[in-house]
Amino acid sequence: MRRTYVLWATAAAGLAVDQSTKALAAVFVEGHEARRVLGGAVTFTAFRNSGAAGSFAPDATLVFTFLAIATVVFITRVAPSVRSTGWAVGLGLVFAGAGGNLADRLFRTPGFGRGAVLDFVQVGGSGIFNVADQCVTLGAALILVQTFRGVRLRGGLGVR
């Protein structure tokens, strides 16, 4: 049975949560003093990130825009052949993360394709991140688990 619907439902849910939390952060966090919760374990503070995770390569915004486009296109092309639920969820999460940060790069200032991603959560002494970043991380981890378990994208076990 095809798992395409699982992939797209996961992607839609991840994108919705990412964009909703970024919209809330833009109103309630950005331009305000950092807010600590859970005994200071989590801090909400806004940061416009033009680079990749951890502000890596802040001058390569266009490169990251094209990488996100390539990721979204690749997942869209392989989606119809996914037969594994693990792969479907993993790819759906990666799509949500790439798509969520791509939306920022396309539509946030300073302009189309050069926008900065809105990061707003910090846990402990970690870097500042957003839901899209966590979707990519969790999705990549699920894909690695499927790969190490020998589960094929198109279902079943074995190497292919």
Rank of each mutant, 00 (worst) to 15 (best):
residue 55 S to F: 13
residue 55 S to D: 13
residue 55 S to P: 04
residue 56 F to Y: 13
residue 57 A to W: 13
residue 57 A to P: 04
residue 58 P to D: 08
residue 58 P to N: 02
residue 58 P to E: 07
residue 59 D to Q: 11
residue 60 A to D: 15
residue 60 A to Q: 14
residue 61 T to V: 06
residue 61 T to I: 08
residue 61 T to E: 03
residue 62 L to I: 09
residue 63 V to M: 09
residue 63 V to H: 11
residue 63 V to N: 13
residue 64 F to V: 05
residue 64 F to T: 15
residue 64 F to I: 01
residue 65 T to Q: 08
residue 66 F to M: 15
residue 66 F to L: 12
residue 69 I to C: 06
residue 69 I to H: 04
residue 69 I to E: 10
residue 69 I to V: 06
residue 70 A to P: 11
residue 71 T to A: 04
residue 71 T to Y: 12
residue 71 T to G: 13
residue 72 V to H: 03
residue 72 V to M: 04
residue 72 V to A: 09
residue 73 V to Q: 09
residue 74 F to D: 07
residue 74 F to I: 03
residue 75 I to T: 02
residue 75 I to F: 11
residue 75 I to M: 05
residue 76 T to K: 12
residue 77 R to A: 07
residue 77 R to K: 12
residue 78 V to L: 08
residue 79 A to F: 04
residue 79 A to V: 08
residue 80 P to W: 05
residue 81 S to P: 09
residue 83 R to M: 10
residue 84 S to L: 13
residue 84 S to N: 13
residue 85 T to E: 12
residue 86 G to H: 07
residue 86 G to F: 13
residue 86 G to L: 14
residue 88 A to Q: 11
residue 88 A to K: 01
residue 90 G to C: 04
residue 90 G to P: 09
residue 90 G to Y: 00
residue 91 L to A: 05
residue 91 L to I: 11
residue 91 L to M: 08
residue 92 G to H: 03
residue 93 L to V: 11
residue 93 L to W: 00
residue 94 V to N: 07
residue 95 F to M: 10
residue 97 G to P: 03
residue 99 G to V: 03
residue 99 G to P: 05
residue 100 G to K: 11
residue 101 N to P: 01
residue 101 N to R: 07
residue 102 L to W: 07
residue 104 D to P: 04
residue 104 D to K: 02
residue 106 L to W: 03
residue 108 R to M: 12
residue 108 R to I: 14
residue 109 T to L: 15
residue 109 T to W: 14
residue 109 T to I: 10
residue 109 T to Y: 10
residue 110 P to K: 05
residue 110 P to I: 07
residue 110 P to D: 15
residue 111 G to P: 09
residue 112 F to E: 15
residue 114 R to A: 14
residue 115 G to K: 08
residue 116 A to Q: 08
residue 117 V to G: 03
residue 118 L to T: 00
residue 119 D to G: 01
residue 120 F to V: 02
residue 121 V to M: 06
residue 121 V to T: 02
residue 122 Q to F: 06
residue 123 V to E: 08
residue 123 V to I: 11
residue 124 G to P: 12
residue 124 G to D: 12
residue 125 G to V: 10
residue 125 G to L: 14
residue 125 G to D: 09
residue 127 G to S: 07
residue 127 G to L: 07
residue 127 G to Q: 04
residue 130 N to D: 06
residue 131 V to N: 01
residue 131 V to H: 02
residue 132 A to C: 05
residue 132 A to H: 09
residue 132 A to P: 01
residue 133 D to Q: 05
residue 134 Q to R: 12
residue 135 C to R: 01
residue 135 C to E: 03
residue 136 V to R: 00
residue 136 V to S: 00
